[in-house]
Each structure stands twice: as structure tokens, then as C-alpha cells.
């Protein structure tokens, strides 16, 4: 071990860590939001016309490699940009083509949110399907509207049942955020790799980077457990 090297390493890793955090937090939040909405539609089958497109979205993102999704969005979308630009200019439309040219950061957050959302939606959908049907009847019998039933019964129960799965997905997200290095985003793994390549010190460098991930995952797991405990209800989970 070489103290001088670590002195050099920490600031670099810290910077990468911040970018990782800036990718992970919005992706986890957006992903969960997408997952709840998509899972709700797929679990309740309502509104009906959205079920099919959303099923296709989920199979696409669950069925293809995440690395490919990143590459397609980052390198592939610009191919659409040129014709879209011509089209927008010709038809006096706003500058929609700019959405096709994403920064590595924006592309990563977009893809991670969508991918994470697809997985979350599976947990939410399963949780909704496991809600005892009689409760819907009871809600109807009491005169609750469909929307009220959804807000006051479906969502609180589904979230509790889906929580362990969703927590797991967030832990995965923390780790697969490292794939942003494919788009040369300067996040934790990519700065670690750059350092290691430059100094030819792989073991120490990746060991140190690993500690950051371990720290992040532990914090996330701790928060999830706290929330789970706080919202625990006899008869749910465990």
C-alpha cells in the first residue's frame, strides 16, 4: 500500500462519487415514480388502452441488456435528430430535435429511470394482484369511487407489499449506475478505471471504489429498512 497514491486517489474518487450520486438519486426517484404509475395501470388493467403499450415497454427494458439500452439512447437517438430537425423546421414546430442530443448524464438518468421503472412496475403489479379481491367489493359497497379505492386501498397496500422488491431494485440501480461509464460519464467507476489505467494499480483502486459502493448500498438499505419499519402494519410482509 502506498499512502501517497491514496492521497491522490481520494479526491478523484470523491468527484466520481458525486456524479454517481447525482445519477443515482434522480434515477431511483424517477424510476420508482414510473414504476408505481406503470405498475398501477398494469395491475389494475385501467385505463385499458395503456395496458398494452406499457406491457411492451416493460418487456423491452427487462428483456434487453442495459448496456445496449444506454448505447442505443446515447448514440442512436442523434440519428433521429437530423430528420426530426428538418421536419420541425419545415413545419414550424418547436425545437423538438434537441431532445435527441442528450448529454451522457441525461442519457444515463433517462435510461436508468426507465429500466428501474420497468422492474419496479413488476413488483407493484404483483403486489396489486395479491390484494384480496373482497376489499374492492367492500369499497364499492361503501360507495367509494374507483379513484378513491385506488388511493386509499390499492396504493397503501401495494406499496407495502412491493417495498422489499423495490428496495432490492434500488440496490441494483446503485451498482448498475456504473454502466454510465460506457457513455464516458465521469462517475465513480469510470474515474476509478482511468486512475487505475494511468497508474497501473487496479487492485487498490477498485478496492477503494468498491468501498464507496458498499457505503452507498448500506445507506440505501438502512433507509429502506427504516421506512419499512415506520410503515409496518401487522399482517403485512414478513
Amino acid at each position: 500500500m502506498d499512502a501517497a497514491y491514496f492521497k491522490e486517489l481520494w479526491p478523484v474518487l470523491n468527484e466520481g462519487f458525486w456524479l454517481s450520486l447525482k445519477i443515482i438519486v434522480p434515477s431511483a426517484t424517477l424510476g420508482l415514480a414510473i414504476g408505481v404509475l406503470v405498475g398501477a395501470v398494469r395491475g389494475t388493467g385501467y385505463p385499458k388502452f395503456l395496458v398494452r403499450p406499457l406491457n411492451i415497454y416493460v418487456s423491452l427494458f427487462r428483456g434487453t441488456a442495459l448496456a445496449m439500452q444506454l448505447v442505443v439512447v446515447y448514440y442512436g437517438l442523434p440519428d433521429l435528430g437530423r430528420p426530426l430537425k428538418a421536419f420541425c423546421l419545415a413545419h414550424d414546430l418547436p425545437a423538438l430535435w434537441k431532445l435527441c442530443y442528450l448529454s451522457p448524464y441525461a442519457a444515463s438518468v433517462l435510461v436508468f429511470s426507465l429500466c428501474s421503472g420497468a422492474y419496479h412496475s413488476e413488483y407493484i403489479r404483483g403486489a396489486i394482484l395479491s390484494i384480496k379481491k373482497g376489499q374492492f367489493q367492500a369499497a364499492k359497497a361503501l360507495g367509494l369511487t374507483r379513484a378513491q379505492t385506488f388511493r386509499t386501498i390499492v396504493i397503501p397496500q401495494a406499496l407495502r407489499r412491493a417495498w422489499p422488491g423495490c428496495g432490492n431494485e434500488i440496490v441494483y440501480l446503485i451498482k448498475y449506475s456504473s454502466l454510465a461509464m460506457l457513455l464516458s460519464a465521469k462517475e465513480l467507476t469510470s474515474v476509478a478505471k482511468a486512475m487505475a489505467d494511468y497508474e497501473f494499480r487496479y487492485t487498490e483502486t477498485f478496492f477503494a471504489a468498491g468501498l464507496y459502493y458498499l457505503f452507498l448500498v448500506s445507506v440505501a438499505a438502512w433507509i429502506m429498512r427504516r421506512l419499512e419499519k415506520h410503515y409496518a402494519i401487522p399482517g403485512f410482509g414478513r
Binding site: K132, G134, Q135, Q137, A138, A139, A141, I153, P156, Q157, R160, I233, G235, F236
Partner: peptide, 14 residues
């Protein structure tokens, strides 16, 4: 205006 009681109670579990 009509109350309904079910065989399986159908209480809201949460």
C-alpha cells in the same frame, strides 16, 4: 344507503 356484510368480512387489511 344499503349496507353489505360479506362472508369473508372484507376488512381493509392496512
Amino acid at each position: 344507503e344499503i349496507g353489505m356484510i360479506f362472508q369473508d368480512f372484507n376488512l381493509f387489511d392496512h
